[in-house]
Write a protein that binds this DNA or RNA. Structure first.
Lengths: 244, 244
DNA sequence: AACAAATAGGCCATAAAATGTCCTCTTTGG
DNA sequence: CCAAAGAGGACATTTTATGGCCTATTTGTT
């Protein structure tokens, strides 16, 4: 290996980690040859990795070698922004489900996820739970009318919901002409397996309950909105106030 | 700052990243002073970070500075082994719930989580979904008898379930003397908000359905077990076969 | 238009770190 | 008891990182 740039050692450390992650036990001398450095240098690299917290285990003697501690690296994920938001919402739902089993370690997963957001969004994200309502299971007719969702629209809805931004949507109820609206997605409401968004409709200046699977198009607008009190939406939750 | 050890630059890079994650825009010269290096060196460090994929944005001119791209770093989590397992189980449940909204990005979260496990456990973890059953909501009497769970015991149960290892448990049904058992936790069954484990009881050589919140103690045994066909457990799911 | 405050980055001398070589020591399986 | 493996000390040498001093460029303010 000829040196190419300044970050050579860093790249090598990454390479070593990648090779170790394959799971096999590696022989120092072999890996050194593979990387084009001396055994001693590789030995020093491993020591450095250990000092920085990577649990490289070693077996001495015949049949030995180096490998990663079996359980390390687990859960090192780099989620995309949308994935992180979806996971955030799902964890909020799981917490609402009140199932004690979920709470064992899921709370700390949520904390880590919250911490991974930037400081500006952290506050928004941390208070997500209070904006997600979990209700009863949906009735059978409702369940059967469930339409396949537009993944892009849902992704944008989620984003707008978390970032508190206005969203322009097309709402397509069956046997009605689709309508276009500008909404503030204030609350999400889950009646398994159906999702609703409790929204403030900007044109009509009123509360609307929309079924998420009927949102066929969504365009994020830049503007942000303020949270409105939940009491405003409570009437919409009783009975069947879903917008047709 | 005088050099202290070999991993100095790595630590400095970590520090820079940590400072950037605070979200504010930073002035190169200030940060350099804070870190005890020259402006030129910091400038080189930033260039290196960019080369390695960290999206550091810079505004030139008055009022400028450097900062992280707003959405970067989101979702970078290092979960512990137990957290990863819990998350894995929760995602499996979410997928069983068949709610289209969950499927938007959660599938790819699951894939990334699977990929983050070591090659040995990956296969076990990937097939977890088929071992988790989601049923109806629990009846009110059942719901009311829900006991607070022993977090340690549940953690060990989850681990044993995923790793397919024998588990020695103490099972404490109300108004009965606690019993000690050695079980193979074959399936998990979720009747919101109650969890059951469908187990093969080693002493009795038979199927048992256990309520997870009644497991008051759990000791992992080293031995692994093989999966048994689901048909074996089907009778236990019909009606109320829960072990008292 | 001029200026000041920012980042970007070239060039060079030098101090410091990384590397390779050559060791010795220890552990472990056959 | 030997060979195969990792751990790590010492030292000379190569390579890199650093600081200092530049210039160029961008951008907001006066």
């Amino acid at each position: 290996m000829t040196r190419t740039d300044a970050s050579d050692r860093l790249n090598r450390l990454d390479l070593i980690e990648a090779r170790l992650k394959s799971g096999e036990a590696l022989i120092l001398a072999d890996l050194a040859a593979e990387l084009g450095v001396s055994r001693r240098t590789l030995s020093r690299d491993i020591a450095l990795m250990r000092a920085r917290g990577v649990p490289v285990e070693a077996d001495r003697g015949r049949g030995g070698g180096i490998r990663l501690s079996a359980r390390w690296g687990v859960g090192r994920m780099a989620l995309s922004y949308d994935e992180a938001i979806d996971l955030m919402i799902s964890l909020a739902v799981a917490e609402q489900l009140q199932s004690p089993l979920f709470m064992a370690n899921l709370g700390s997963v949520r904390q880590k996820l919250v911490a991974s957001f930037g400081p500006r969004q952290r506050a928004q994200v941390a208070r997500l739970k209070s904006r997600i309502l979990v209700g009863q299971h949906a009735s059978n007719p409702t369940r059967e009318s469930l339409a396949p969702v537009d993944a892009t629209a849902i992704r944008r809805l989620h984003r707008a919901f978390v970032e508190r931004r206005l969203l322009q949507i097309t709402y397509s109820a069956p046997e009605r002409p689709p309508t276009s609206r500008v909404i503030e997605p204030q609350f999400l409401h889950y009646n398994a397996p159906v999702w609703y968004v409790l929204a403030w409709d900007h044109l009509r200046q009123d509360v609307r309950t929309l079924r998420c699977d009927r949102i066929t198009n969504a365009q994020p607008l830049g503007e942000t909105f303020e949270l409105r009190p939940f009491s405003l939406f409570e009437p919409a939750l009783e009975g069947d106030h879903v917008l047709q």
